[in-house]
């Protein structure tokens, strides 16, 4: 059972690292529009920017 004295602090540190990674992902915009990522393979051309201009070119 002595291994618990190592594992518990280790897991606490690991959890905080995971939370940090998630924070970076949220604030870099990876969850802003979840649907669009799924639709990306269906698009004819890669989207240049989030502008209406990008869509018009596709039509």
């Amino acid at each position: 059972m002595d291994i618990l004295y190592l594992l518990i602090p280790l897991s606490a540190v690991l959890i905080l690292v995971i939370v940090g990674i998630f924070g970076w992902a949220v604030y870099s915009g990876q969850f802003d529009d979840v649907e669009r990522e799924g639709e990306r393979p269906l698009m004819d051309e890669p989207e240049a920017a989030d502008g209406p201009g990008a869509r018009q070119r596709g039509d």
């Binding site: 939370v19 998630f22 924070g23 949220v26 604030y27 915009g29 969850f31 802003d32």
Partner: peptide, 9 residues
């Protein structure tokens, strides 16, 4: 973003 972050934390 801020609400999602707080919800996750």
């Amino acid at each position: 973003r801020s609400v999602l972050w707080r919800l996750f934390v």
